[in-house]
Design a binder for these strands. Structure first.
Length: 596
RNA sequence: GGUCCGGUAGCUCAGUUGGAUAGAGCAACAGCCUUCUAAGCUGUGGGUCAUGGGUUCGAAUCCCGUCCGGAUCACCA
């Protein structure tokens, strides 16, 4: 039970006793006391004036006096304007701390096996190019939110939907056929996704040459762009693919296979895993039957050319195409199909799509269509819409070569961590493989934290020149705090200090109380970030805790403390902070080192 | 043009049911290592919370208008 809950019921009954009216929850406003005032928790009196019919000061005093009189845990109070600042006794804090100390993973809830799961779809890459910074944000958000939901007590199923078909991969295929000379990732020593991506770029280069040539022959730009031979060849390849031409399929499988090998590497480096991977080549025909169903229900209508539409103008949206005149489906058709497929498969209580904010309209339409089709779970579809990662000069543009490649970025971060570590020299006595492990943790921690500390729905700016910080509000700062604590604990063990419960007679100082309060807020932080689908809340929490601990560490000695009870308490406090930091960082997908 | 999102220190960001004097980090400057890890700690400077109104005991937060930025409104995905 946290302090707010602890005091809310006490204040409620006091108000009822004095003035005869029971206040509702909204009228009982308890909040952390601001640092400039004395006290632990503050009751805001203004909402209660309607009940008390007294001045704010009188109301505060009346409640404060009763609190002290009735409850031994309450040490005292002071009143400033309409604020009742309440102080709790040292033993109250020691007791709550011991309570936390006795719990294994404080703040984490075991998931409920019997409840329906939450399905979360994220990553969803195209197989024509390597992952970039935008994908990193998507993957990190998906992974982190999955973990947060899981530890908030939900069952989570992580799924990926790979866009492995369409004209884009055919472009890479045609370029490889024309210019590849049988080259493979192995023979060229390139990572598979990068290798295939290069042929996609090669296609574009050739395409432009051909367009210029056609223009020189007198065609307009528009004509040239639809008549370039290499484009026609790519489209022909797509038709062959759809007709299941064996040679085409074989090449498609080969090239996608290269890409997947590359993706697997990147996912593994980033620490991303899935419970299930879907492929669009297997799902792109889904949803067509549902269109027929919708037609018969009169939800959709057919135009003269045979195309099928839904009119959403009454809902403030537009008309939306669901099936082309030639009977082929569009993206949303597939999404209708996959949603139904997944519901049948998992019976989810929520289905989260981690997709950029440029697709908000799409998901708005999807949800509405599902509702109109009569699926009562349509409200369970949730678009976790995140903002773009921008460069100082704006959007990343592949044409201008400003796209920040995921693998390159990770490598740079790790190398920066290495330079910094070498400079500090703290790992000089550590063996190479451990050092490499730690450096990787730090480099990736810096990157992940940098991205996850920002509110998902906001756009964020990434400046490649200034590179990501390792000091201040960063992942390494928190990792450092953890390593520092672990070092102290190791020394405590060497000194033979035995762990045990904290002595109830000690009286925690101000910094220690602040830490106890902060630790007590971790469960709430987990629950909030889960319900908001927002890892940034965890990041901010971890930072605040680390910062607070460092102040404590600076101001007080732990192992050299002479009073054995106090020393043990400080060691216990340090252990709990380290565990909480570790768990919070785990929720962000960030590992913490024992030393750095 | 319609819809949605955003605008907080020079820069990157916190600020969650409306609460006290709006906070961090970076950058700048000044301090703190014979003492448990200085990737740390302390201090200084830096703000008409885009803007104008409204709601009330009280507004960065809620409502309306205006300005600026972004996304979207495809027989693309």
């Amino acid at each position: 039970m946290n302090i707010e809950q602890f005091l809310e019921e006490k204040v409620r009954s006091i108000v009822k006793d004095i003035w005869g009216v029971e206040p509702d929850t909204g009228q009982l406003q308890l909040q952390q006391t601001r640092k400039d005032f004395e006290g632990d928790i503050t009751l805001v009196a203004f909402p209660l004036l309607k009940i008390s019919h007294k001045s704010p000061e009188e109301t505060c005093n009346a409640i404060g006096e009763k609190l002290v009189e009735l409850h031994p845990e309450i040490k005292g109070f002071n009143v400033i304007k309409g604020f009742l600042n309440i102080s709790l006794t040292p033993s109250y804090w020691v007791n709550t701390f011991n309570d936390v100390l006795s719990q294994k993973d404080f703040g984490f809830k075991a998931f409920n096996q019997t409840e329906d799961p939450i399905v979360i779809e994220f990553s969803s890459p195209n197989t024509n190019k390597p992952l970039h910074l935008g994908h990193i944000r998507n993957n990190l958000l998906g992974m982190s939110i999955s973990r947060i939901l899981e530890k908030s007590g939900k069952r989570v199923v992580k799924v990926n939907l790979v866009n492995d078909r369409g004209v884009h991969i055919c472009k890479s295929m045609i370029a490889w056929m024309k210019f590849g000379n049988g080259e493979t990732p192995q023979s060229s020593g390139k990572k598979g996704d990068l290798f295939v991506g290069n042929y996609y770029v090669r296609f574009d280069k050739e395409f432009k040459v051909q367009v210029e040539k056609l223009k020189a022959e007198g065609l307009s730009e528009e004509e040239a762009k639809v008549k370039a031979p290499i484009l026609l060849e790519a489209q022909e390849l797509l038709r062959k693919w759809e007709a299941k031409d064996p040679e085409t399929i074989a090449l498609w499988e080969k090239m996608n296979g290269w890409v997947y090998k590359g993706f697997d590497q990147t996912y593994s480096d980033l620490g991303i895993t899935f419970d299930k991977t879907y492929y669009e080549s297997q799902t792109y025909l889904l949803g067509k039957a549902e269109v027929a169903h919708g037609l018969s229900k009169g939800v959709f209508h057919k135009k003269d050319d045979g195309s099928v539409w839904i009119d959403l103008t009454a809902d403030g949206l537009d008309e939306k195409l669901l099936l082309r005149a030639d009977g082929t489906s569009v993206y949303i058709t597939q999404d209708i199909g996959t949603a139904i497929q997944r519901y049948n498969e998992y019976h989810f209580q929520e289905h989260i799509y981690v997709v950029g904010n440029e697709q908000e309209y799409h998901f708005q339409v999807l949800k509405l269509i599902m509702k109109k089709l009569g699926y009562n779970w349509s409200d369970a579809l949730y678009h976790l819409s995140y903002g773009m990662v921008l460069l100082p000069e704006g959007k990343m543009k592949s044409r201008e070569g400003t796209v920040v490649d995921a693998d390159d970025l990770m490598n740079e971060m790790v190398e920066t961590a290495r330079d910094m570590s070498n400079e500090l020299g703290k790992l000089d006595d550590v063996d190479t493989s451990t050092t490499n492990q730690i450096i990787r943790m730090i480099g990736l921690g810096a990157l992940k934290y940098f991205i996850l500390k920002v509110d998902p729905k906001k756009n964020m700016t990434f400046n490649p020149k200034e590179s990501i910080d390792f000091n201040g509000n960063t992942g390494p700062f928190i990792q450092y705090t953890h390593a520092r604590i672990r070092s102290v604990i190791r020394k405590a063990n060497e000194m033979g200090i035995i762990e045990g419960k904290t002595d109830n007679n000690i009286s925690p100082n101000e910094k220690e109380v602040t830490l106890i309060k902060l630790i007590g807020k971790f469960p709430e932080a987990v629950q909030n970030s889960a319900s908001e689908h927002n890892p940034a809340l965890i990041a901010n929490y971890a930072y605040e805790l680390a910062k607070e601990y460092n102040q404590f560490y600076h101001d007080y000695s732990i192992l050299k403390e002479e009073n054995a009870s106090t020393r043990l308490f400080r060691i216990n406090l340090s252990t709990v902070v380290a565990n909480t930091l570790k768990n919070a960082m785990w929720l962000l997908g960030i590992d913490v080192p024992e030393m750095m």
